[in-house]
Design a protein around this nucleic acid. Sequence first.
DNA 1: GATGAATGAGAGTTCATTCAT
DNA 2: GATGAATGAACTCTCATTCAT
Lengths: 223, 223, 223, 223
Amino acid sequence: MSSKALAERAEDAPPRRGRRKEARPGELLDAALDLFVEKGFAATRSEEVAARAGVSKGTLFLYFPSKEELFKAVVRENISGRFAEWNEEFESFEGSTAEMVRYCLNVWWERIGATRASGITKLIISEARNFPDIAAFYHQEVIQPGMQLVRRILLRGVDRGEFRAVDIEYTIFSVIAPMIFLIMNKHALGACIPQDYPMDPQRYVNAQVEILLHGLCVPEKKA
Amino acid sequence: MSSKALAERAEDAPPRRGRRKEARPGELLDAALDLFVEKGFAATRSEEVAARAGVSKGTLFLYFPSKEELFKAVVRENISGRFAEWNEEFESFEGSTAEMVRYCLNVWWERIGATRASGITKLIISEARNFPDIAAFYHQEVIQPGMQLVRRILLRGVDRGEFRAVDIEYTIFSVIAPMIFLIMNKHALGACIPQDYPMDPQRYVNAQVEILLHGLCVPEKKA
Amino acid sequence: MSSKALAERAEDAPPRRGRRKEARPGELLDAALDLFVEKGFAATRSEEVAARAGVSKGTLFLYFPSKEELFKAVVRENISGRFAEWNEEFESFEGSTAEMVRYCLNVWWERIGATRASGITKLIISEARNFPDIAAFYHQEVIQPGMQLVRRILLRGVDRGEFRAVDIEYTIFSVIAPMIFLIMNKHALGACIPQDYPMDPQRYVNAQVEILLHGLCVPEKKA
Amino acid sequence: MSSKALAERAEDAPPRRGRRKEARPGELLDAALDLFVEKGFAATRSEEVAARAGVSKGTLFLYFPSKEELFKAVVRENISGRFAEWNEEFESFEGSTAEMVRYCLNVWWERIGATRASGITKLIISEARNFPDIAAFYHQEVIQPGMQLVRRILLRGVDRGEFRAVDIEYTIFSVIAPMIFLIMNKHALGACIPQDYPMDPQRYVNAQVEILLHGLCVPEKKA
DNA sequence: GATGAATGAGAGTTCATTCAT
DNA sequence: GATGAATGAACTCTCATTCAT
């Protein structure tokens, strides 16, 4: 009991180097995400995950019955079910659709792209064919809702006469592709090759948005 | 004539335990490329590569001293040093820069994107951090020359007043990103998830080009 | 009482899958010495060493990173650095040099020749050319100090007028050769051929010593 | 018959770089002896033997059905059946037994010790326990006749009053041990360690003989 | 609960041996 | 006869997983 009290206190006061039982699975998932993204599923050793999380090999298997289940948990954990929230923002957004696109991609960068969660995208791309059910899950939970959100935005632009009457289904990819590219650069080549050109993510996102909007918007006819 | 017929039949069903020293490395590299792209380096078993090439485990090691060398050979073999040729085409191209962009991406799709060589891109993205020297090699042999070619095209457009004065360095990515996206779709999720939307690569490429050119071109002032 | 009985029984039949981190390396080194001496390094299978030590293949590699390192550890472990002790005995020895020679070879037989450590000599002879660095190590740690000790003994004998003025450097071999021969007999042919002549090591050593001393000593001139 | 004539002619006129079919097995046996002595049976690759003999892997197996049979042939080939000849020399020897011992060991050095045949001894010692039947064969063909010859020499010395009445059986080893030691030095440590002391075989043999004879001979009573 | 010693199936690699050429 | 490409059994070593402590 007194130990439980201690544990609770430990939670109140941020972890002072103490091991908090409740935090273990999360720490393992964080460690696993990093390593899976870095080396791939097969090339990551379970023991390394445990070591990075500061626990022993055995403890890992106490929380996850197998390396494969760990992988699935990593994906599940890092798939933000934030589309409900984002759809709400969409509904109540009052500015122009161009502003909406700008806002949307910047928010995406802040909340996903710049965080460890972005690693999931690289992980899925690398491992999709070894874990088709995980790929299907990701497709359903992330890709479809994401595309649907983009679709609604593009439709809004076209409906309101802000955007040209482009082929919406293919234009969705014009929004998504630069983001995928940024993540791949962050987690693959960019992570191991000293870049010979500057690559500031914020500026990159803005540049892509501007090109995209130039391509989408109807020319403003000024008297 | 009958000997010719025999030869043809032999081609249909290649001889088991035949001695085909010249053909083996290529067959093994083909098999290895497929499997590495499909499952990743670590998850691909040497014996599986051999089996797909129609030889035994031992034969693989007759031609490649280790699985890692096989990997490197796969990358080397499939990295086209075609930039010289493409640069020449660039020099002698006489149409508008917009036409050049259209031509360029369509040619890329035909010669790289649609072929097995495109798998290399996925492979590199997945394995870069496990093989930094291979990543560096790819960067030097493919990414840098590729970016340089795109850079020259964009500069031509801007210089000739066809394109707006965009930030060239970041705009390069607007050309590349959709192609990377297409390859990832082909070799990762798209290869294992039944797509619920149509994805015709030719139309995809054209759609991306049109959005891009809309974003790049200065509005044509008529009369 | 019953618990004590149980413990004793457990000692008789050591626990399978027991955790005995301290004891393992020694048991593995013992097993490896036996097998390397018996079959040679290359012909000894790692799994066999493990099995003789009562553990599984994997456990061997838990303690030694490779078969080669196991070999080196076997040699290191069994090379007694007892020359300091023996040199002290030499310094304080008070009898005749002939007695010293007798004492010396008998002690050698008791402490080295008759023990498993003697196998190292056969091992080194068999594997020297495959492990030149190990051979050099053995030369430095065993052969040189050993020859130096014998050299000092012979010099003492000559200096004190007990031994004839023989060529010391070559006479050293007259002391060593019979010991090497005995070990080779013990671990090579003698170990697999039913000897057709009696070979009692103790008597063998004594016989060699007597021949040797007869060869070395100056004839006692009796009035 | 004509092939026999050819062989003889080939012997007369030294091989002019031409491949002589008849010589193949011999070249293979020579190569095999060298390599088996150097690296041991298990660590020697068949292909290496073939390469050193200047033929292909396949050819080796044309002459010897297996690596093991090659080993046996190497031993057989290099075991001199010269004891008949030596026994004759013994019978007709007219000098003192001491001279006989000197002569005997010097001849041994010239005809065996200094030649590649001496490698067989090291080979047998290293591999005896892996090839007990070969060991038995060697014991019967070499060790027993060799010991018998030494035995007869020692008996002659004792019978004629030249040698002391030593324990003949154990004294045999005093003759053999230095020779074994010399061979071991030549083929094991001595072959891979830069000796820090001089080791002239001829002088070594003489030194051992003199010590031995001093130990054996009855003091010459002068006057 | 946590640990890490122990396991053993499985992967990469070697090499004696075969056999089509 | 000679060759060397091909084979596959056997070996070293790895690592996910178990379980006694």
